[in-house]
Design a binder for these strands. Structure first.
Lengths: 153, 153
DNA sequence: TATTGTTATACTCTATAACTATA
DNA sequence: TATAGTTATAGAGTATAACAATA
């Protein structure tokens, strides 16, 4: 007797999660950034002046990867590296004025994205889903706001 | 006034989904395969004798990628390519006896994985989550059982 | 001429390790 | 000597396009 291919919650999570991530990537390509960029921009926005090392640590990523990501954002004029006069080794990261506008647009896109992905659910179900996922995330020890797309070094 | 970083359902989906996928990849590494391998093995198991073209189409992937994946599975002794005497251009794909055993083990690992990922939920909540995710998957037009990790060509 | 599968090639992403400059 | 950041390099994964065999 063969096992019927009834996907469980874990497979559905991976499937729907990857779909949601891919659709989000499509949307934000409008402003010329990709999901890792957005993660970094959000972290810099919430704590301006952070060093690349501290970002690497929180993301669970090797510092040389942050260099590449920040290079890209700097080329696009979204992030500034400012030498810290107290310790000229480290770079304080700040968003540019343009980045503030871009972040506003990203928040709009994220909101549309949210509605799109949850189009099958009513408000109650959406709240329920958020609660269930939040419980899993907490129990699994996921860092709030940090996407595991950044891999551990 | 700054927007509080309250992650919505879409972000949680992407975050938890990527986590689930990564954990599953760890588990199945025990039998020397990775998630794309498992997807292919499952498809061949449910419809033995399929051609590489038909797999490529269902996965939404370029045929040359299927070549590489099947090469790997063949090297590991899990898949056989059999020339079709009627049309000697195409290769009918079949699982080996070893692959049947490996699939049994993978099903065990998937079951453990499922319990692990849903450890924060009781049975009722787990059923609820599965239902909500199923509704999203259907409304978003996702192919049942096909992980979007295989990208569209 | 069209189709199945393959190879050759190139591009992207990411990690490792060596290196520079500051401390 | 230790630390922040950078560069150079290599490996994995994947797509594109040219190609071989068969129809």
């Amino acid at each position: 007797m063969s096992t019927p291919p009834q996907p469980g919650a874990a497979f559905l999570l991976a499937q729907v999660g990857a779909h949601a991530a891919a659709r989000f990537a499509e949307r934000i390509s409008e402003v010329g950034v990709d999901p890792p960029d957005v993660g970094l921009l959000r972290m810099i926005a919430s704590q301006p002046g952070r060093s690349q090392q501290s970002l690497a640590e929180q993301l669970g990523v090797v510092p040389s990867r942050v260099v590449v990501l920040v290079d890209g954002l700097q080329r696009r004029g979204l992030v500034e590296r400012r030498r810290n006069p107290q310790d000229r080794r480290n770079h304080a990261l700040h968003l540019t004025a343009e980045a503030e506008q871009v972040m506003t647009r990203i928040r709009e896109l994220a909101s549309t994205h949210e509605s799109d992905i949850c189009a099958a659910l009513d408000d109650h179900q959406r709240a329920q889903l958020t609660e269930l996922l939040g419980a899993i995330a907490a129990q699994q020890g996921l860092t709030p706001g940090v996407h595991p797309g950044y891999r551990r070094p």
